[in-house]
Amino acid sequence: MTLAISDLKVTLGGREILRGVDLELRAGQVHGLAGESGSGKTMTGLAVLGLLPHGARVSGRITLGERDLLAMTPRQLNAVRGGEVAMVFQDPATSLHPMLTIGRQLTEHMRHHMRLDRRQARARAADLLRQVRIPGAEEALGRYPHQFSGGMRQRIAIAVALACSPKVLIADEPTTALDVTVQAGILRLLRGLCDDLDLAVLLVTHDLGVMSAVADEVSVMRDGVVVETGPRAQVLRDPAHPYTRALLDSLPGETS
C-alpha cells in the first residue's frame, strides 16, 4: 500500500511550519527524509498520525490507499494509528512507558486492534521480540524498560510498532539517541523488516550517513518544503538542488 502526502501545510501559533509537503511512500521501500533541525521532518511524520501539537492547523491530503487520513474522525484515525500506520520515536528511554512491563506494552494495542486474547497476544509478543533479536524473549516479556540497554530498548520499541502488522512505519530519528556502535544494528534491522514484511518506511533523519546506508528514495526538506526527491544514488551523488549540495559538503571527510 502506498502512503501519499500532497500539499501538506501545517500552521502552529500563526507560523507556517510545513508549506506544502509532497511525499510518496511505497511498500517495500525505505524513504529517507533529510534536512536540518526545524526543517519540518518530524512534523511531517507526526502529521501522518494526527499527533501534531495542540492548536496546529493542517491542510492538504494524506492518503493511505484510498482513504484520506486528514478527513477521518478521531475514532477512525485511532483505528489506523498503531494498526496500519505505526511509529518509532527518537529516544527509546522515554518513548516506552517506564512503569509497564515489555509484555504489556507489546500486547495492549494488539489486544485492542486485533482483538486477541491474552495468551495469543503473549505468544505473538514473544515472536516479535525474537524477530527484533531480543535474547530470552519469553523472559524479557516480564521485564521493564529500565532493565534493558538503549539499543535493546529501541529494538523493543520497533517490536511494539510492528505488533499489529502495520503497512507503514514512520521512524523518527530512530538511531540518534543511540551509541554509534548499535546504530548500524538498528538500521540493518529496519532494512530487513522493510524487505521481509513489505513495509513502507519513512526514515526521518538529519544524518546523511544513515540515509546512504539504508534508504531507497531520499527527500531533502528545508523550511517546510521538500526541495529535492529521487533515488538515493542520484540525490546523494548528483544533487540537483544547491541546498542538498551544501548539506553533503558539510559532511566531514566526504566529498560530493
Binding site: L51, N78, A86, F89, T94, H112
Partner: peptide, 13 residues
C-alpha cells in the same frame, strides 16, 4: 512526556 505520545501513536483508546 514522550511515552504519552507513543501511547497515542499506538492508537490506544
Amino acid at each position: 512526556q514522550d511515552h504519552v505520545r507513543a501511547g497515542r501513536a499506538k492508537g490506544l483508546p
